[in-house]
Design a protein around this nucleic acid. Structure first.
Lengths: 140, 140
DNA sequence: GTGATTGCAAATCTTTTGCACTAAA
DNA sequence: TTTAGTGCAAAAGATTTGCAATCAC
């Protein structure tokens, strides 16, 4: 048996992204990629880290989130001015956005059929198609 | 002939929205609704007003944009964290977003076909579907 | 060791707010 | 008048940055 490496999976993921597996990055990555798909703001993630006694500064959380996004391990979702969500689901998919609570919910890519789409302006290529289905409470 | 009213159209539009046609609001509405469809940030609109020697504060521009949005005369488009665009096109439509320049371009609603869409979460109704097609330069 | 990473606090940027002043009705 | 609207400057958030201290390799 080889020497057991703690959090080997997370560390490999960071390494794969070209990021040094520091204490902070490992902790954040564990929080992010532990459960299923998550939608978190920097503030929320920072709060959770603090809760679990992980000493990280908010600045580092922001930096790490952006680094992971750039590496393709996270996706940034913009639904509201002045607040960014980071999505651990990087598969092709879209979102329900419940405006009253600010909650995001994934819609699997295959559940949405976009038939036609015009050609992008000259000299541009499509990078990504984001669909946000904004919802409110039925009674309103 | 009745007494000619300057900017009667704009004034009526504001009145119709329940907004007093003040000097500032008239000027801003004229900038917004003059040409065809426009996508502006508060900062940009403020800049244009100043350029044309209209004395308005940025705070008033923000207030007015939100009032017009609430009245249904404008639509807010969120594509980037920390910056809101206001769209004078209130018809059903979507957007190309050219990431390098931050430019928005309308896609008429009928040019995009969304076939299937899952039911929203229990107790919620769909308010609006926003589709943002993010583009980059072809060569990148 | 040494170069990448972190923390902290300050800086930045967008947007909102409080309040005395001004203007529309 | 009387009440809504405005400007200004200050406040509030979210995010970024500069730089000395710290850590991974």
């Amino acid at each position: 048996m080889g020497t057991p490496r703690p959090y080997a999976d997370v560390i490999d993921r960071l390494r794969g992204a070209g990021l040094r597996p520091t204490r902070q990055r490992i902790a954040l990555a564990r929080l992010l990629f532990a459960g299923g798909d998550r939608h978190v703001t920097a503030e929320q993630l920072h709060g959770q880290a603090i809760e679990r006694d992980v000493r990280v500064s908010l600045a580092t959380v922001y930096n790490t989130l952006h680094q992971l996004t750039q590496a393709g391990l996270l996706r940034e979702v913009v639904v509201e001015p002045g607040r960014s969500y980071f999505d651990t689901n990087i598969a092709d998919h879209h979102h329900f956005y419940h405006e009253p609570t600010g909650e995001l919910q994934d819609i699997p890519g295959e559940k949405v059929g976009v038939t036609t789409l015009p050609k992008p302006p000259k000299g541009q290529r499509i990078e990504r198609v984001d669909i946000i289905v904004r919802t409110r409470d039925s009674l309103d």
